[in-house]
Design a protein around this nucleic acid. Sequence first.
RNA 1: CGGGGUGUAGCGCAGCCUGGUAGCGCACCUGCCUUGGGCGCAGGGGGUCGGAGGUUCAAAUCCUCUCGCCCCGACCA
Length: 573
Amino acid sequence: MRWSQNFIHTLRQDPSDAEVVSHRLMTRAGLISKVAAGIYNYLPLGWRSLQKLEVIVREEMERAGSAELVMPAVQPAELWQESGRWFEYGPELLRLKDRHERDFCVGPTHEEVITDIVRRAITSYRQLPVNLYQIQTKFRDEIRPRFGLMRGREFIMKDAYSFHADADDLDTAYRAMEAAYCRVFERCGLGYTKVEADTGNIGGSESHEFMVLADTGEDAILSCPACAYGANVEKAETGRVTPAPEWPRELPGSAEAVHTPEMRSVEQVAEFLEIDPAHLIKTLIFETDEEFVAVLIRGDLEVNEVKLKNELGCTHLQLASEAKIEEITGGPQGFSGPVGLDGVRIIADPTVMELAVAATGANREDTHLVGVVTGRDFEPSSVVDIKLAAAGDPCSTCGEPLIERRGIEVGHIFKLGTKYSTSMGCRFQDAGGKEEPMIMGCYGLGIGRTLAAAVEQNHDDKGIIWPLPLAPYEVVLVVLNADKSEIVEAAEGLYNELRSAGIDVLFDDRSERPGVKFNDMDLLGFPVRVVVGKRGLENSEVELSLRKDGEKHLTPISEMVGGVQAMLEDLRS
RNA sequence: CGGGGUGUAGCGCAGCCUGGUAGCGCACCUGCCUUGGGCGCAGGGGGUCGGAGGUUCAAAUCCUCUCGCCCCGACCA
């Protein structure tokens, strides 16, 4: 392909609305352009990279035993009503009506449609398992799209679904998908890690996320440097955290109320009472779709709202407003405590129950209770781990301190169980003639997001440094002094040689000044560069170089193709 | 949805406070010149200043409303 026949428009300046590096560089390099918030065009070069990634994904899906199909973007409401998600999904689901006023939505994911396909076709355990995937455009009306392709509203995703007669068979498919994902990210040359994850509102039992490590990642992940444990912070379990220090004073016979004027935060109260923050019971009032709950956590720790949500089995959870807190506890915000708290469920983290003696809010203005004893002064409704894991906490497996890193979620695989097959009647007859719901798995991989993650991980101050498998073109041939006909002729000859050798090459045939061309090459990040110009041609030489190190190798024209092939070979190994 | 910001030529921005013929850099067009890291000179085209309403002799500028976009948060496979 020639530059002059392509549609490549680079920007000299950073776009004003791009914050993260992948968004900035992909826009500047003319790979994508914005149409509306979270909605992008994939321009020719960007689309070419995307297609290369899709080829890799298809090959690995095939290897994992999944067959490709394509489902519609626009889906009838009936299917979503059947699964119940028409009512659960919320405003993220883009809903629309056709001319007959019938309800539809733009698919944010395809469990409903795929389940409908399979239930119509499969009736017997003899026909299972089924494993299908598609690469397709999704729409999720995110509250806050941002960072270019990293969190768009419309985005391209590979989604696969598997259907099984039993849990062991699901496990086999799950492991095959897990391996396929690893191979995809390895083939793309990305540094990634696989972590345990929460299943969110998709539902299901086991779940893993694939994270490309990058400081700009939106997810925090905790991993153990000693063993293989790694998890999204939302999901992470820890071993027993350091217990609170010894209570510094004599234990009063009963809890005593202490005047603590304007002391609302844990730090203030701990300092004022001359105790450790770990001696405090922090009491948070949460509001769900149907109830209020009081949540108790040790003063030096934080609550994991995802764990709490799972415990409560609710879809919406938020901290109660100041007015509600007063209504429920009788005291203002900052002075809540479990003692004498009636009318709401009290959920305590185990770390609270370990405290022999504690201080906490008195549910009265400017007052805390000191010398509170668990079990004597209050009794929680339930004790559940709802602690947010943090860097430095001991690994749940081996006890080593966990470290925190940031990652971009590029893949997420779930064991769904029978959530959709039950609600939508996707059943089969087992060997005994009994009808059972199929057991399902689903497996997502963000195509655009993976590409953005690759840029996030492979760039310098001049531009993108494509890993070879994702580069829009593997080689760029640049002609300098393009006003001289003998030089253009030589370059044309080299272009033909490269093409005849089957090399994936872009020919920059523009008559721009050298500086412009070099800067564009650096920005676009083609792995291998061939420069033809007056200076080299005088000695029948061209210059070969790699984007990643920029080292220039003068090569006789007759050896150009061989030299390029050697460099590509080198990059592949 | 709460908080903050922003909207002026394809891109990046100034002008607004203090109302008076809409500017700069890059890009683009023409000519000359130049050609191994974003050339130089000369000439030129392009904007109902996000939209609506108001104040005024006069509004990019002041006022009201509204829409888009960005950032932080909440939220989110």
